Simulated scan of single mutants.
Amino acid sequence: MPSAIRVHETGGPEVLTFEDVPTPAPGPGEVLLRQHACGINYIDTYYRSGLYKAPTMPFTLGAEGAGEVVAVGEGVTLFKVGDRGAYSGAIGSYAAERVYPADRLVPLPDSISYEQAAGMMLKGMTAQYLVRRTFKVEKGHIVLVHAAAGGVGLILCQWAKALGATVIGTVGSEEKAELARANGADHTILYRTEDWVKRVEEVTAGAKCDVVYDGVGKDTYPGSLDCLRPLGMWVSFGNASGPVPPVPMLTLAQKGSLFATRPTLGTYIARREDLLATANDLFAAISSGAVRIPVNQRYALKDARKAHEDLEGRGTTGSSILLP
């Protein structure tokens, strides 16, 4: 019988339980995936803690993974048994096997490993839409990336640098600063010991930034706004430190007619054509060498609790995956 990580009540990492579950059967339009790797993301902690409401209780955590199609449901023509696939979307990925809608699964090229895919589908496609669509990064832009040594952060730094931007990253330690610099950051700021808003002004010689990519949330507001030049964009795409309080619209005017947005990957890949375009652009960036996916932590599926403790304790860098 396959295994999965289940949550019966919301709370800390201790609520994650490793259980045997029945083999699911794919329904119409679905495939059954035997997963080779499952991605771990900060959003998983939001569902586990109850900050985000899960669709059912109990539930299986996780929103990305990669594996092999082992059965197809009625009407499925996009995939056949033996095909490789990867996804980011509906929760339920912390499992050895899972069913998934065929039209939300992406064909995985042979050049991309299952571990790479599981470590990048959510984070990589998030980075793709952030630098290619939410704010189109171009040569000469100055970009600030918070949590620059994190899963999305390392990919953002690489991609923005490849597009010709000057990249500034905030990090929590000198070790993480070295990692960020090795992945494209031109300047790093230790946010725990430095006045990072002042440092941004210094390293940009007063010019400040065209865009701030902020996955941290409460702790970086309103400082992120103070790092922007007039008409700059604040992209708040996560709440690792807690939700951002309500932002007065007049504040945006007073700080230079700023733009602010709270995007989600789900909106950007809602149509299958956008899903495929986003994923294929990501695959191309990896194949070209412009972006590398650092999978720096690997855990057995049964050790999901330890993975969450490490993640929330700021003890991880790059991508983390579970191995069923």
Rank of each mutant, 00 (worst) to 15 (best):
A180H: 03
D210H: 14
P109G: 10
G27F: 01
T134H: 04
T10L: 08
S257R: 01
L322N: 07
C38D: 02
A165T: 11
L228Q: 09
I286Y: 09
Q254R: 15
A71L: 07
K198R: 15
P2V: 10
R314D: 03
G266Y: 03
I142H: 12
V216S: 03
I321Y: 09
I43P: 02
I168A: 01
I155K: 06
A4D: 02
A54W: 02
L252P: 08
V72A: 04
R305I: 00
V137S: 04
L33D: 00
G89H: 12
H141Y: 08
I91H: 06
T77R: 14
A277L: 11
W234T: 00
V76S: 10
G313L: 02
H141V: 14
Q254C: 01
A90N: 11
Y52H: 12
D210T: 07
A185P: 01
D214R: 10
T60L: 03
G184E: 08
G217E: 01
G39M: 11
Y213G: 01
V247A: 02
S320E: 07
A277T: 15
E174N: 05
T10D: 00
A66Q: 08
L231H: 13
L258A: 07
K80L: 00
G39P: 02
G65E: 08
G89W: 13
I168G: 03
V31P: 06
G172M: 12
M233D: 05
G67R: 10
A277R: 15
D83M: 10
P2M: 10
R272I: 02
V295Y: 02
I269Q: 06
V203N: 11
P222Q: 10
A160H: 01
G315L: 07
L258D: 02
K198L: 09
F259P: 00
P324V: 13
I293S: 05
Y100P: 04
P101W: 05
S224G: 13
T317Q: 11
A118N: 01
E19K: 07
G62Q: 06
